[in-house]
């Protein structure tokens, strides 16, 4: 009797606990997206200003003034969420935009649904006039750069003030050294033209929108002078191909280096065991 009562109490508390857990999960799941325009403003400064302005003309990407009236909201939401997927799916608007903007695709910003909704709410607010358009740095505000200093920064001869890694670690520029630079990031030989000159680049460098660049530079940003010098260098670096002459010393260097290594290894391991049985048999046959 006592046992069965104990059992029913246990069962009841178990059911209660299960319900409580379910309620918790349901609350989390059912919470409406937080369409906060404030969050949208912050996100815009972090993620968008590299390529977009609102009312100050186009940079790498289009001017976003009036975008919520130009495009449908559903399209905007899915575009910001996953531009790479929409391009891959061959969305007509996306394909048209890509052609218009130097074939530079909009990167996937890795935002979640709530964040996308906040961004769209922010853009809608601006278009409706309830929120002031942000004031963004423009090319005019960037001081004149020195391409020599820029090159030193790019190659890492001089370090960045905030400790960022030299560009050459990941990027290459035509005509820079026999071996060029890193191959992790894209070749930057034509970056200046591709990004629409200083106006486009300054936005990009201020807040790099791509995942890799953002991860590296958001914690150790470039100073305004550094940006100017780098842009000056990128502007001057217009050689499109590595000169053929550079390949000759490179080849010679490689061969000489390999030979030196072989000789050193031969010397270091000169007493190594090469062959015992075959050598013995050969020696015996000769004698």
């Amino acid at each position: 009797m006592a046992l069965s009562r104990l059992r029913s109490i246990a069962l009841a508390s178990l059911v209660f606990a299960a319900l409580l857990m379910a309620a918790l999960f349901i609350t989390v799941e059912a919470a409406p997206p937080n369409q906060s325009a404030d969050e949208g403003a912050t996100l815009f400064k972090e993620k968008c200003v590299g390529c977009h302005t609102i009312g100050s003309g186009k940079l790498v990407g289009p001017d976003l003034k009036g975008v919520t009236q130009r495009q449908e909201k559903a399209w905007l939401l899915s575009w910001i969420q996953a531009p790479d997927k929409m391009l891959a799916a061959g969305d007509p608007i996306a394909t048209q935009l890509l052609k218009e903007y130097n074939n530079l695709p909009m990167p996937n910003l890795g935002l979640n649904e709530t964040q996308v909704a906040s961004l769209v709410a922010y853009l809608e607010g601006i278009d409706a006039g309830t929120i002031a358009a942000p004031v963004l740095p423009t090319a005019a505000a960037v001081p004149e750069g020195n391409s020599v200093i820029g090159k030193e920064l790019f190659t890492g001869v001089n370090r960045f003030q905030n400790g960022g890694p030299p560009c050459m670690g990941c990027h290459s520029v035509g005509g820079l050294g026999a071996l060029g630079g890193g191959a992790l990031g894209p070749d930057l030989t034509t970056a200046f033209d591709k990004y629409g000159g200083a106006a486009g680049l300054v936005g990009f460098l201020n807040a790099p929108p791509t995942a890799t660049m953002n991860a590296v530079w958001s914690r150790q940003p470039l100073t305004a002078d550094e940006q100017a010098n780098l842009m000056a260098f990128l502007q001057s670096a217009t050689a499109t191909e590595r000169p053929v002459e550079a390949l000759v010393p490179l080849t010679v260097l490689a061969i000489v280096g390999a030979l030196i290594l072989i000789v050193v290894a031969q010397l270091y391991w000169r007493k190594r065991l090469v062959s015992v049985r075959r050598a013995m048999v050969t020696r015996s046959r000769i004698s």
Binding site: W269, R272, L273, S275, V276, R277, R278
Partner: peptide, 11 residues
């Protein structure tokens, strides 16, 4: 990474 005194399979 290179033991110089290994017998070869021929040995």
């Amino acid at each position: 990474f290179f033991n110089p005194y290994l017998p070869t399979v021929d040995d």
